[in-house]
């Protein structure tokens, strides 16, 4: 990997860590809190018990998929342009899987884990899941898409090596200049 690819990759990883582990909770609490908490849900408890674990799981998954992508493209020696472009559908599948997994993590940590364990997430409430309003769900799903962009699209766009360096969507536009 060339320095001009390595530096943006490190920057993306640092930005991802800072965002997922620090910045995102701040934004969800102070900017999008109204949409997510809706009618009186304990937002701090939700962020600590459901939102943070689900986004952290997404971070680990994205990091793993990004690593696999970079290793695969580094190792390959494509025959021609068509063979390089054959990786585009693979990239889209990775992205789609990451978004779906991100959504699943939200559902799992907000609803399923409490249902399975039979424990109510909030003491004194009968429902054994976080009661996130529809607006909150939509917000979380959109944030997942944004996170996949930050955690997978940007690093793969900046750091896909050798013949694969322009194969990620947007790379031609942002990196294809001479």
């Amino acid at each position: 990997m060339k320095p001009k690819q390595f530096i943006p990759l490190i920057a993306c990883v640092l930005a991802g860590v800072l965002w997922i582990f620090i910045g995102q909770n701040f934004v969800l609490q102070n900017v999008l809190g109204g949409l997510i908490a809706g009618g009186g849900m304990d937002l701090s408890l939700f962020l600590a018990s459901a939102s943070s674990p689900s986004f952290q799981a997404l971070w680990f998954t994205s990091a793993a998929v990004t690593l696999i992508w970079l290793l695969t493209t580094t190792k390959k020696s494509p025959l021609n342009s068509a063979e390089v472009r054959e990786m585009q559908p693979t990239w889209w599948i990775c992205t789609t899987v990451l978004v779906l997994l991100g959504w699943f993590y939200q559902l799992f940590f907000t609803v399923l884990i409490w249902q399975i364990s039979g424990v109510a997430p909030v003491e004194g409430i009968n429902t054994n899941y976080f009661q996130v309003p529809p607006g909150g769900w939509i917000t979380l799903l959109v944030v997942v898409i944004f996170d996949v962009g930050l955690l997978f699209w940007l690093p793969t766009m900046f750091a896909s090596p050798k013949s694969y360096r322009l194969v990620v969507p947007g790379a031609m536009k942002f990196l294809g200049g001479r």
């Binding site: 342009s81 472009r85 360096r165 322009l166």
Partner: peptide, 22 residues
């Protein structure tokens, strides 16, 4: 063969798999 293939593929699509052509 790559130059031949570029005749029937949109040039930017082709370049996404062949950065050297730019």
């Amino acid at each position: 063969l790559e130059v031949d293939a570029a005749q029937t593929t949109p040039v930017k699509t082709f370049a996404s798999g062949a950065p050297w052509i730019r």
